[in-house]
Amino acid sequence: MNRDKNILALLLILFFTGYVQAGGKFAHKAIDRPDIPVDKNSLYSTVKYLASLNPPRNYRNISSLNKAAAYIERSFRESGYTPEIQTFKQEFRLSKDEFKNIICSLGPPDAERIIVGAHYDVFGDQPGADDNASGIAGLLELARILKIQNPALKYRVDFAAYSLEEPPFFRTDSMGSAVHAKSLFDSGKKIKAMICLEMIGYYSESRGTQGFPMFIMKLFYPSRGNFIAVVGNSGQGKLIRQVKKNMKTGPGMGVESLSAPSWLPGTDFSDHLNYWKYGYKAVMVTDTAFFRNPNYHNSTDTIETLNFDKMSEVVKGIYQAIVNLE
């Protein structure tokens, strides 16, 4: 108990000194946005396909991972891209299989890059509709509508679908995003920002459905799990604020933000952590995973539990963030 009190005191100090920044009470107003033609059916089709792959798309089932990769590659091609496949092997002799990141790009080729990434593998033998078929659905739809809308882009945008985010590879150099981040760093690429889509489909309008890593956060954030969160590391407040501001949508979609040290549980729970390692600015856009979704890493993480209207709003918001990032 003393330890918890100490952490609480530390968090309060950090909060009031600006090291931890909550966004709940300081929300930006919604900005005007053009009509962005997000196709809800397309989001649904992608989640349905990935979540129904059998056996599930985990590292033991390379055939399913390859089917997922082929689906993503095909979708990028249908949107008018020429995707690249980045292949790699995991380093622990758990299998001899070759794993794949699928990457495609838009915008000025030599400009600084915005990486938009999501993982397509799944934890254990679960369907993984929210975790993370929803993230991949958002990624593919973003790529599609950006190509169609063809807005003036200041930065090059790389869309990356990763393999091996889930345990037992999480936090290892065998994560697909670790391979990708390292390749960017080794080749001296300049990265403006990385935006990680980690579970964007689960929402609830009931009170008390939103959990938090620290009790004190209840004072600053809604108790209803009906918002999308932008989460980043301490010192990356500017990026977080920009993404949040641009993601603010209509009345049906709240956006909250958190800038916190990576030791706060959940802050670094996805692919963005690998970009932090190389000093790149990176944020996670998430429905807050297990802090809200009771189906997290369970067989009940199914398509029926997702809200595709909200997902569409999230995609629109990220579109705005990409286009308007300063």
Binding site: F92, P167, P168, T172
Partner: peptide, 12 residues
């Protein structure tokens, strides 16, 4: 509990 999570701790 999950085998993958346990193994992941050792690998990472």
């Amino acid at each position: 509990n999950s085998f993958e999570a346990a193994l992941g701790k050792v690998l990472s």
